[in-house]
Computed example of a mutant assay.
Amino acid sequence: MSEDFSAWVGRREEVVDVLEPARTNALRVAALGQTTPLVAGDELPLLHHWLYFWDVRPPEGLGPDGHPARGGFLPPVPLPRRMWAGGRLKFLAPLKVGERVTRASTILKVEAKSGKSGELVFVTVEHQLSGAEGVAIVEEQDIVYRGAAAPGSIKGPTGEGPAPTAPWRRAVDPDPVLLFRYSALTMNGHRIHYDRPYAMDEEAYPGLVVHGPLQATLLADLAAQNLKAPITGFDFRGMSPAFDGTTLQVCGEPTETGASVWTEQGGVKNMTAAITCGAAR
């Protein structure tokens, strides 16, 4: 790729939001099946900070895929497909529902690569979230841009597959309603999650795509339910896309340092994550 995006490295922005309870409670009901509401002062569940800090643009500020138009804070990479490939989080202190939080973001790295699937551009962004008691979360997000996919090149699961044997597991139906709700709660306009003709005809997917952050949130919740020590680290990576129409198996098992968790469809892993636990906070 001939474009030079080195000028974007080091770019910073700050945004402020209030972690109002309606969004986290809506996700807890829609995705996690929990009906006891959280109130101001309760700890925000892990990864629910992704529900806040919306980047709302007017219609003329959107690209054809429903994302904000290229440019602005992130570099204007011309490759048509953009996805959140994974990330690393350190939980230093809990955030509280109702708290006013500042998110300071910095572009750490922009790398262009060529592989079997064509040109790729990787952008790494660091977010530091600070509440009343200082920095609570340090997060690195890996965003990948890639070329258009050929029709039929992205395969979905061929069936439900064998039942997983993991000691921790939960079956989730990633139906269009759940995907729409998560898109709405995160103000994620990417059409691959709710617009089936666009997902299939324009981006060559075999169905609606299950959000990576939604899968990560399900994994973090599964681990939090089964681990006694507090979670201090969460490193996750997307392996293959997950789609609606097939049960999403949310699985995990304990390790010496915390847990290994993953999602799978039809026996194929979609996302994996390593969880680290620490001393009580």
Rank of each mutant, 00 (worst) to 15 (best):
S2Y: 10
F5T: 06
F5S: 03
S6D: 09
A7I: 02
A7K: 15
W8P: 06
E13N: 00
L19M: 14
P21L: 08
A26I: 03
R28N: 13
R28S: 14
A30E: 10
G33W: 04
Q34K: 14
A40T: 09
D42H: 03
L47N: 10
L51Q: 08
Y52G: 05
P59M: 06
E60L: 12
G61Y: 04
L62A: 08
L62S: 08
P64H: 09
H67M: 13
H67R: 08
H67A: 08
F73I: 06
P75N: 14
P76T: 09
V77I: 10
P78Q: 10
L79D: 02
L79M: 07
R81Y: 08
R82C: 07
A85D: 02
A85C: 09
G86M: 05
L92I: 08
A93L: 12
P94Q: 15
P94M: 12
E99H: 06
R100E: 14
T102G: 06
A104Y: 06
L108E: 01
V110H: 07
E111M: 02
E111G: 01
A112D: 00
S114A: 13
E119S: 15
L120P: 08
H127G: 01
S130Y: 04
A132G: 13
A132M: 07
V138F: 06
E140V: 01
Q141H: 02
D142W: 03
V144N: 02
Y145H: 15
R146V: 01
A148N: 09
A150C: 03
G152K: 09
S153E: 14
G156V: 13
P157E: 07
E160W: 11
G161S: 12
G161Q: 11
A163I: 11
P164I: 12
P167V: 10
R170V: 10
D173K: 00
P174C: 13
D175C: 11
V177S: 14
L179H: 07
F180G: 13
F180I: 04
L185V: 13
G189W: 13
H190C: 14
H190D: 01
R191T: 00
Y194S: 07
D195S: 15
R196A: 04
P197M: 07
Y198D: 02
A199G: 12
M200G: 04
E202H: 00
A204F: 09
A204G: 02
Y205C: 03
V210L: 02
G212L: 13
P213V: 01
L214V: 01
A216Y: 07
L218W: 11
A220W: 04
D221T: 15
A223D: 15
A223Q: 06
A224P: 10
Q225S: 01
Q225F: 03
L227M: 12
L227K: 15
K228A: 04
P230D: 03
T232G: 01
G233Y: 02
G233D: 11
G233L: 05
F234W: 09
F234G: 04
D235L: 02
M239D: 01
M239K: 15
A242D: 02
F243R: 04
D244V: 01
Q249N: 10
C251S: 14
C251E: 08
V261S: 10
T263C: 09
E264K: 13
Q265M: 04
K269T: 12
K269G: 06
K269Y: 05
M271H: 06
I275L: 08
I275S: 09
G278A: 14
G278Q: 01
A279S: 15
